[in-house]
Design a protein around this nucleic acid. Structure first.
Lengths: 229, 229
DNA sequence: CCCGGTGCTTGATCCAGATCAAGTTTGCCG
DNA sequence: CGGCAAACTTGATCTGGATCAAGCACCGGG
């Protein structure tokens, strides 16, 4: 087994878990680790992607843009998610690093070769697509029916649930990697409304905020109630 | 090839297109056609589904509910879509017939047997999941960033694009199968706002409405502009 | 044909969140 | 350490869509 893969966080729940040691070694020869800075464009909407990647660490924003410049973040991805749109030349969502992101990248042809050999790999990709679909639909009720305070609380719970793939359930202290403008684009609100509602949660004692980035959840149950369950 | 499948609309772009005649015959023995009335609950959230189905005709609403009763329609399905959540005991979305719906139903075990035999079938299911994911994300920008008039216009275009699987592009005359309350739950608005904005499009001459149900799109380009592209 | 109910439209008022406008904190670089 | 820009917070006002409140069309049943 490749030394790289032995330590690869992507295996824990990632798509590579579907491969046997021989296949893993074969794929390992065609992958490269990369670390990109916050703000790096990873996938451009409408542009054929040169490859795919597993996210080893950090947060990736999936962004949709309207012609007049309005934008909506349609998803966040965390380790060990698979990044890219299988079986399509291009997608109409862009992906951008929201924090420093560590990736295990591989070419489209390498993935397609592995899928042909290991049907279990396509099954994993299928499972992830279904999970992302569930997440997207869950977020649709947030965008369509929740109030601003509920949306902000829902966002904090989402982040707490995913920011550290090693913590089951919710992390209680973590860095918000996103800027207020990103949060606003994810929640369908303005930065001012996001800021006001974070302040309200802080004043209610439900969360603490240090240096604007570091969040501590003091009362998870209260936050869940604030999120509308 | 089973007589039923020969004429089955589900083959045109549906998942059964992945099967060869022998496999189709095998699956055909385990399927049943059914016609259900508008309002029938097809899948209940949280309840293990007894089976799956291909939609042969009509419109199915996918609904998510909050504990306090607020609801959001998170997707609409049309022929020849596959209905159900593969590889999961239950889902947290409900499905309800929005019109009279014709279905080709089969058991969970029948599907799983076919998938084991025909990897191409899982590939089709995967493709549909990815398409639904794209649709869900497209709708997220509608819910998060569009104004009420833009949402209503977007809804009419969505319906026009899918209501008749035989028409490529947009149908120009069709029945809105959904009630105003359903449209409101899909758009994240109230019935009153939906009604006002339909009237506005009518008064602008962009659409005509007969007997509250039958829509004619007089100016597709104008409707696209009204939808924010 | 009338009658009643359900679903839809239209109008009047209200309010959550947008917009506009200062201030304030943080972090960076010389 | 000081100065500056970017990011954030807070306050004042405005407005789009919600809410409240009648009326109106369509449909099914007697």
């Amino acid at each position: 087994m490749p030394v790289l893969c032995q330590a690869c966080e992507a295996r824990h729940g990632g798509i590579c878990g579907a491969l046997d040691p021989g296949q893993l070694q074969q794929l390992g020869r065609q992958t490269a680790r990369r670390e990109v800075a916050a703000g790096t464009q990873l996938v451009a909407a409408g542009v054929p992607a040169d490859g795919y990647a597993n996210i080893l660490g950090g947060v990736v924003k999936l962004i949709k843009l309207m012609p007049d410049g309005r934008q909506q973040i349609v998803g966040l991805q965390f380790a060990p998610d698979f990044l890219g749109r299988p079986f399509a030349d291009s997608s109409d969502v862009s992906a951008e690093a929201a924090s420093t992101v560590r990736l295990c990248v591989f070419s489209r042809s390498a993935l397609e070769r592995m899928v042909a050999q290991a049907p279990a790999l396509e099954h994993r990709l299928h499972q992830q697509a279904l999970r992302e679909l569930d997440d997207a639909r869950e977020w649709m009720i947030t965008l369509g029916r929740k109030s601003a305070p509920e949306r902000v609380a829902s966002f904090l719970l989402l982040l707490a649930a995913h920011i550290d793939p090693l913590v089951p359930g919710y992390s209680t202290t973590f860095d918000i990697t996103l800027k207020r403008a990103d949060i606003a684009d994810f929640l369908g609100l303005t930065i001012e409304t996001v800021s006001r509602n974070l302040s309200a949660l802080r004043k209610a004692g439900i969360i603490s905020i240090e240096r604007r980035r570091c969040i501590t959840i003091n009362d998870t149950a209260a936050l869940e109630v604030a999120a509308g369950r």
